[in-house]
Each structure stands twice: as C-alpha cells, then as structure tokens.
Design a protein around this nucleic acid. Structure first.
Lengths: 116, 116
DNA sequence: CATTTTCGTTACGATACCGTATCGTTTACC
DNA sequence: GGTAAACGATACGGTATCGTAACGAAAATG
C-alpha cells in the first residue's frame, strides 16, 4: 500500500516533527548523522565506513567523525572485522534502537495529529 | 483524514528523504534552520525574531544567526516594522517558497515509493 | 618478498554554530 | 523629560563540522 500524501500533509508533517525534534533536542544530530544512523538501522548489515560514505555520497572522514560523535552518545559501536582487519564493522546498540524507535513514534503521532 | 503510518513506513520515509537531502545538499540546513524555515512558510505571518525564538524554544541569537545564513541563501528576508521600529518582520521569498515546494514534492515522491 | 592497493583514521586550517553577556535603538512608563 | 523595558544584533570564547591531504596498518598483486 503506497503512502499517499498531499503537499500540505507532507510539509506539515515535516514541520511538526522537526519542531518537536528541536524542542527536545538533547542529541542535536546533523542531517548527515541522522542519515547515517537511519542507514545503519534500516539497512541489513554489514556496514562499513567506505560503504556508508559511498551510499551517502560523502567522504570517509565525514563518516569517521559522525561515528565518533554518535559513538560517544552510545548510538552506534565499531568493531574491527576479524576476517579482513582493514575493515571496521559498524554495529547497532540498544540506545540507538531506542532512539530511532522514539523517532518513529514521534512521526506517527505527528502524522496522526496532522489532519485531525 | 488522519495520516496513519506504520513504524516501518514512518522511519522508512524519514530515511529516504534524509538520504536524498544529504545527496543533493547544496543548502545543508541545520535542524533548527529547517524548523525556522518551515515555521515561516507554514504559519501565518507576521514572524518576528522573538516570536520564532519562543516558538522553537531557543535564544534570540540562534534566530538571528539562522536568518543571517538563510538570508544570504535567499530563503528569507528581513524588514524593519514601521509601526514599531524595534521589531523586525521576517518575510518569505520566491526562492524559499520554491525550496520548500521541492521538499514537499520529495517527501511525496518518497512516500509513494515507500511501499510500492 | 617487494610493491601497490585498500581501508579507516588523523592532521590541518577554515568555517559555522553554540550559549552567555552586552550593546544600540526604540518604545513604554511615570 | 528621564528612566525602565523590549527588541534585535553583536562580541566573545568554545566546540564541532567541513574538505583536502597525508598517514599507518593490512591485504592483494606480481
């Protein structure tokens, strides 16, 4: 079932969710960081720095920095690949899953309140 | 008609739109800047620095800085209020309207492609 | 083996944002 | 009129990101 939106619904939803995100903030993720996080949690593993960089169309240092920051916040973890020790495998965490779960709930709630 | 989403649809939509935003970038708006822009274009005027700061729950310099940046990009304009020259009225621009129109189209397209 | 390639990280200078405090201008108040 | 309040902008030091370039480690190549 396709998700059909009117222009008003689309921007209204974005507005409502963005507004609440700003209010609660706390994490204050960049657009790129958010994209990386969603990619890690919504696309089947494994995820590597190089793979993420290619998928997002950014350079590798951008990924490394984002993983540094989000790692400190407990949203992701990194582990060396034992089969090819050049690679780093990015792993999900419980906190990261909870964070995105809450984001999903927020979007749903705001979508429901959109056109009451 | 309420906008009912499943958790998968909600995060999937966010993922797809965020990803494409990162790809096209160019503007690279902060979460706060995006919230300000949507507020200006989706809520009836007039908009003031103080009003936006209160609505977003941030300090006034945050609004001033965001308006500086987005003003340089042609997304918004500022004008002194002639009836109370302390105030600054934030105005919409054609470029800003076009930018949000494209964002709306993007959301709709990604929503449609979400569960094909 | 020696060399090249791949992978992620680090170094560097530049830029933009942050929060707090302060400023100049304008209006309201007494 | 003189003082206080409101409004937006600016100054400041701090922090995080940016892109480019170089680096060390590991694997592939010959």
């Amino acid at each position: 079932m396709p998700l059909d939106l009117t222009p008003s619904q689309a921007l209204g939803l974005w507005h409502a969710v963005t507004l609440q995100q700003v209010h609660e903030d706390g994490r204050d993720l960049t657009l790129r960081q958010m994209a990386i996080l969603l990619e890690i949690y919504l696309v089947p593993p494994p995820h590597t720095v190089r793979g993420l960089a290619a998928k997002l169309g950014v350079t590798k240092p951008v990924i490394t920095r984002a993983l540094d920051t989000m790692g400190e916040q407990g949203l992701v973890t990194r582990m060396r690949d034992d089969r090819d020790r050049r690679n780093v495998i990015i792993k999900r965490t419980v906190d990261g899953a909870l964070y995105l779960e809450r984001l999903g709930d927020l979007i749903i709630a705001r979508g429901r309140a959109q056109n009451p």
